[in-house]
């Protein structure tokens, strides 16, 4: 018996957040007195397995076969279920990314195993795995236990530290064949356009977000735009010309409130909140965001929150460690300059 950690890969490299899953898997394995095995599918698996060893995996099960390239739920779930059947791990852990969520849920259904999703804390009590996880969009927390021989666990990104990377004995690597050869019969990927270089909101250590206040950009909109169109134009300029430079200096991802998304200032992918993404960065800078309860649900787990808002009564200041009352279009450029001077 051991504990599996699924190492998500893209273009032959491990997603760095996957090492957090390995860390969480190790904490379960240590409590049970067993070893951790890294599960790695796709191109370059052997090299990634060597890294997994340095992060503390005792072994790795790899499948570097073209059938596993690119990721497809059907091929990956079939092989993961086959490995679970063969090895009966006590737990299978991944980060709760889009792929981690669907892969582990599917394999858990195959073996009728319990799945505890999006956990922020894990422990083992009398041999059963207990996860602490949000419910009701994070407004409350719950403890969930699982009672099956194998428990599947997805961990929230940035909730578990990656284990130290150190020289270790080479992990024992076993290469396994794919389980389904031709999944393309049912599903065909026609086009994949990646935002190369874009920082993933959920992984970001720093997030800079804009809200409704982004519309108060003092620049003049083109004359042919009227009313609301002019507001949207000014807000979009604000995200591109005022917030983005701050994000660039900090290496931050850009977030937004629902109000800003619904008003058409920025695409939905950037929304932070109950009907957007949940983020837990080290630093969250809220610019022109009032801090509605639905936004708080998505960012209250941030380590340090900075609020910049004209309205001294805005609820966001109650959550913030540091607040500046002022016009974001004056404060943000000044902050960007101050950071540029200090960080360079």
């Amino acid at each position: 018996m051991n504990v599996f950690a699924w190492i998500e890969t893209a273009a032959g490299a491990a997603e760095s957040s996957s090492w957090e899953a390995l860390g969480a898997a190790k904490s379960i394995a240590d409590a049970l007195g067993v070893d951790t095995a890294a599960i790695i599918f796709g191109e370059n698996s052997a090299a990634i397995a060597a890294d997994a060893g340095k992060f503390g995996a005792a072994s790795a099960l790899i499948c570097d076969d073209e059938a596993m390239q690119p990721y497809r739920l059907e091929t990956y779930a079939a092989l993961l279920s086959k490995l679970v059947d063969a090895h009966m791990p006590a737990a299978v852990v991944s980060v709760a990314t889009g792929r981690g969520r669907e892969l582990l849920a599917s394999a858990a259904a195959d073996s009728e195993s319990g799945l505890i999703a999006e956990v922020i804390d894990l422990r083992v009590e009398n041999g059963s795995i207990i996860g602490t996880r949000p419910a009701y969009a994070g407004k409350v927390l719950m403890e969930m236990s699982s009672h099956t021989p194998t428990t599947f666990v997805t961990v929230r990104g940035r909730a578990f530290p990656p284990p130290p990377f150190e020289a270790a004995a080479e992990p024992s690597i076993e290469s396994v064949p794919p389980s389904i050869i031709d999944a393309a019969l049912e599903l065909q990927i026609d086009d994949l356009s990646a935002e190369i270089g874009a920082i993933n909101l959920a992984d970001a250590a720093i997030v800079v977000s804009g809200g409704r206040g982004m519309a108060n950009n003092p620049i003049t909109a083109p004359a042919d735009l009227s009313g609301e169109e002019a507001n949207i134009w000014r807000a979009k300029q604000g995200f591109a010309k005022t917030l983005q430079p701050l994000a660039d200096v900090l290496g931050a991802a850009i977030g937004a409130s629902r109000a800003a998304v619904d008003a058409g200032f920025i695409p939905y992918e950037h929304q932070v909140g109950q009907t957007g993404k949940v983020v837990t960065p080290d630093l969250y800078i809220a610019c022109g965001i009032s801090g509605a309860i639905q936004h708080q649900a998505g960012m209250r787990g941030s380590k340090v929150i900075v609020a910049i808002n004209k309205d001294a009564e805005a609820p966001i200041f109650k959550l913030a460690r540091y607040g500046i009352v002022g016009d974001l279009y004056q404060v943000v450029p000044a902050l960007t300059e101050a950071l540029r001077a200090r960080l360079s």
Partner: peptide, 17 residues
């Protein structure tokens, strides 16, 4: 396969702004 053992309120953020 799973059971909710207990629900609880998130710890209040001890923040002095």
């Amino acid at each position: 396969a799973t059971a909710a053992r207990r629900y609880f309120n998130p710890p209040a953020r001890e923040i002095s702004t």
